[in-house]
Simulated scan of single mutants.
Amino acid sequence: MDSYLKNTEELKKKIDNLKKENNYLKKTLSNYQTIEDYSFSYKNIEISNRYHSLLHHNNDALIFLSLEGDYLEGNKKAAKMLGYSDPEIKTLSIDDVLVDCRESGEILKKILREEKVRPYKRQLKKKDGKIISVIINVKLIKDETGTPSCLQCIIRDITKIQNKEKRLKKLLEDYEQIFQTTKDGIFLIEVISRSKFKYLKNNKSHQKKTGFSLEFIRGKSPEQLLGKKTGKTVSLNFTRCVDTKKSINYEELLNLPAGKKYWNTTL
């Protein structure tokens, strides 16, 4: 039991830390929607100090491509993201950096038909061969006569987010493995308030020892699961754990579907 608690506590800390980091990164990423406001013409960027500043002092990679996919102009962030020098990146086309070009043609057709294309995920290949995951927002830029002239691409690197999501998924899988394979009966409780609780899940061992299936226990309060009198006693122990803000241990006698038994319970 002590080993289980130690392992699960360590996993829980890692999971909580990853969730916090993920939430922060996703909050930052949510601001990506605002990049659609960067609407300006390629020609203006060449002659305007204001847009020059926006181009080169932006946290996102900003690239202008010809309608054929060749590089026209971009900011320092774009070159840095892909690992190229400024002269090197100017010799590239979109096909040189896209890992999979199969959908590029369809996206270009939609853009030329002036259909709305939402930001989409892609993988890009850096100069050193490393693969990064990005979100790309593409906008069609027209000249003064209304003729399509180039493509404005705003690119955000989401590799860190995806890597953290993979790590979080692995930690959750590890936690679930320990949870389900331990011989001790384990149940999870949601604390709704100081005196209000509901069961979230129980492991296979708990199901066998109590006679309560996961489907039966899920979402019920102690009073609903165990009856008013016994449920209230159980809830008082849960409240005591909440109030002390630390692990507590006690013995209890419960009459459950699998029989009347004494339990040594640790919360």
Rank of each mutant, 00 (worst) to 15 (best):
M1G: 14
K6E: 06
E10A: 05
E10R: 15
E10I: 08
I15P: 12
K19W: 11
K26L: 10
K26E: 12
K27S: 13
T34P: 09
D37T: 06
S41W: 10
K43Y: 11
I45Y: 01
E46I: 13
R50E: 11
S53I: 08
H57A: 14
N59Q: 13
L62Y: 15
L65D: 02
L65H: 02
E68N: 01
Y71H: 13
L72N: 10
A79H: 06
M81E: 00
S85L: 11
D86E: 14
T91E: 11
L92N: 14
E106Q: 11
I111L: 05
L112W: 05
E114P: 09
E114H: 07
P119C: 00
R122I: 08
K127T: 05
G129M: 05
K130F: 11
I132G: 03
V134H: 03
V134G: 04
I135G: 05
I135Q: 04
I136M: 13
N137T: 03
L151W: 10
D157Y: 00
I161E: 02
Q162D: 03
K164F: 13
E165M: 04
K166Q: 13
L168G: 04
L171E: 08
L171N: 14
L171I: 13
L172E: 15
Y175V: 07
Y175C: 11
I178W: 00
T181Y: 12
T181G: 03
K183H: 14
L188C: 03
V191C: 09
K196L: 06
F197W: 07
K198A: 02
N202Y: 10
H206F: 15
Q207I: 04
K208H: 13
T210I: 05
F212D: 01
F216D: 12
R218H: 12
K220D: 08
P222H: 13
Q224N: 14
K229V: 14
T233G: 12
R240E: 03
D243A: 08
T244S: 10
Y250N: 07
L253P: 00
L256C: 03
L256M: 09
A258G: 08
A258R: 15
K261M: 08
Y262P: 02
N264S: 15
L267P: 01
